[in-house]
């Protein structure tokens, strides 16, 4: 070990340590950077980050229509099998039989909020909601059916 490297090591060590202390010192003096939420107190005006993921939901429009075609892409994408698509046969106005979803069963108790199903969906039928108060007394209540009863597929979505 030569003397130059020795002194350079000490210098580099010191400057990098000081850099770290500058960062924490900045946070110490700037309290507005604090990101902790006082949760039960500010429950009414809670501000969640944009990308917070609480559960999978299927948005419906006012005519009780969703965009799900039943392509099963989400079911295949899910790494731990928390989505199950159940089909039914529907008659189109022309009298043809058409495959449509009966139930889109979503097991919240298995879900890890990995977002892979939302990314896999070709027709943007499901998305992540920001609700997070999921505690229930009965585990069965965590098995949810995402499409509303009597809902139909939106026109123009194939």
């Amino acid at each position: 070990m030569n003397a130059g490297k020795y002194i350079r090591d000490i210098w580099n060590g010191f400057t990098s340590l000081l850099k770290g202390m500058k960062r924490t010192g900045y946070y110490f003096t700037h309290h507005k950077e604090i990101i902790t939420q006082q949760y039960p107190d500010n429950r009414n005006d809670l501000k969640l980050p944009e990308r917070f993921k609480g559960e999978v939901v299927m948005p419906h429009n006012e005519k009780n229509e969703h965009r799900c075609t039943g392509c099963q892409a989400c079911e295949l994408a899910c790494p731990n099998g928390s989505i199950k698509v159940i089909f039914k046969n529907e008659l189109t106005p022309e009298g043809k039989k058409k495959k449509a979803i009966d139930k889109l069963v979503y097991h919240l108790e298995l879900c890890t909020m990995c977002n892979l199903c939302v990314e896999a969906c070709p027709s943007d039928a499901i998305k992540m909601a920001q609700t997070f108060e999921h505690s229930v007394f009965d585990r069965n209540k965590l098995t949810k059916i995402l499409n509303k009863p009597e809902s139909k597929i939106m026109d123009g979505v194939e």
């Binding site: 946070y27 110490f28 604090i34 990101i35």
Partner: peptide
């Protein structure tokens, strides 16, 4: 308190 403020906590 010091540790909390340095880690952006309350």
């Amino acid at each position: 308190k010091v540790s909390a403020w340095m880690q952006i906590r309350l």
